[in-house]
């Protein structure tokens, strides 16, 4: 319940700073909800696949070192 407030603010902040919508997901899943877990993971992977490889907030070691 505290986390809900913090995630709400964090998600808004990250998307405000330009993280693509759809890259950050939140879900509440109980350990007894296997089917919901499976469905959520599928949705997340599909959403991220559709966006393609991340280009923002990525540290390229070859560039830094």
């Amino acid at each position: 319940m505290f986390a809900r407030r913090r995630f709400a603010v964090l998600k808004n902040l990250l998307e405000y700073a330009g993280l693509e919508p759809g890259r950050l997901h939140f879900s509440w899943i109980s350990s007894a909800e296997a089917q919901k877990f499976q469905q959520t993971v599928t949705e997340v992977t599909e959403a991220v696949k559709a966006l393609g490889p991340a280009t923002r907030m990525i540290k390229d070691i070859r560039k830094v070192a």
Binding site: M1, F2, S27, T40
Partner: peptide
């Protein structure tokens, strides 16, 4: 402080 509190009806549209 608001981050140390919660209300049952806080917005939660972003949680699936």
């Amino acid at each position: 402080p608001p981050m140390t509190l919660f209300k049952p009806n806080d917005p939660q549209d972003f949680i699936k």
